[in-house]
């Protein structure tokens, strides 16, 4: 870890896709305007499934949440504000993200970002980093890390002992 970054990490075992959805539903009410949730992980580890459940927890249970790989960004309105679901898989240069409205999203939206590393220097310092990885038994493992102060307390209250 870089010296300037303060991080607190919690691990959650996810047996199946329903467990991923439950984790998303648990985190969604904690989100505030201006929040950034970076969804890290390889292809097929459940980033879009997580985002879908997160959006549904804040909108309604049958909200259509397509994979934004093609459109790069999909927006949803909820009581807390606008949810921006980004998929930067196709992004070639970090600067191209400016075309997608990231400044507006980071200012007062709730941003869910798949492939956040493509943002390079534009990735906000304050964020919740959620890394999904596949486990040998076919399940998933989620590592939640508060990067910066903003998420640390919230994670501690919800996931700390």
């Amino acid at each position: 870890m870089g010296m300037a970054e303060s991080k607190t990490t919690y691990c959650v075992a996810l047996a199946d896709e329903a467990a991923t959805a439950r984790l998303a539903a648990r985190l969604a009410p904690l989100a505030r305007p201006g929040d950034v949730i970076a969804l890290e992980g390889d292809l097929g580890t459940g980033k879009t499934s997580f985002a879908r459940a997160f959006v549904r927890a804040l909108t309604h249970a049958a909200e259509e949440v397509p994979s934004p790989t093609f459109t790069l960004a999909q927006l949803y309105e909820c009581d807390t504000g606008t949810i921006w679901h980004f998929d930067l898989y196709r992004l070639e240069k970090p600067d191209d993200a400016l075309e997608l409205g990231i400044e507006e999203a980071f200012a007062d939206g709730i941003s869910l970002i798949e492939w956040p590393e493509r943002l390079g220097p534009w990735l906000p310092r304050q964020r919740l980093a959620l890394r999904l990885s596949a486990t040998a038994d076919g399940g998933r493992r989620a590592e939640l890390a508060a990067v910066g102060q903003q998420w640390r307390q919230r994670l501690k209250e919800s996931f700390g002992e």
Partner: peptide
């Protein structure tokens, strides 16, 4: 809309 579905467009 199908519950359990994230239908496109």
């Amino acid at each position: 809309r199908l519950p359990g579905a994230g239908v496109k467009a």
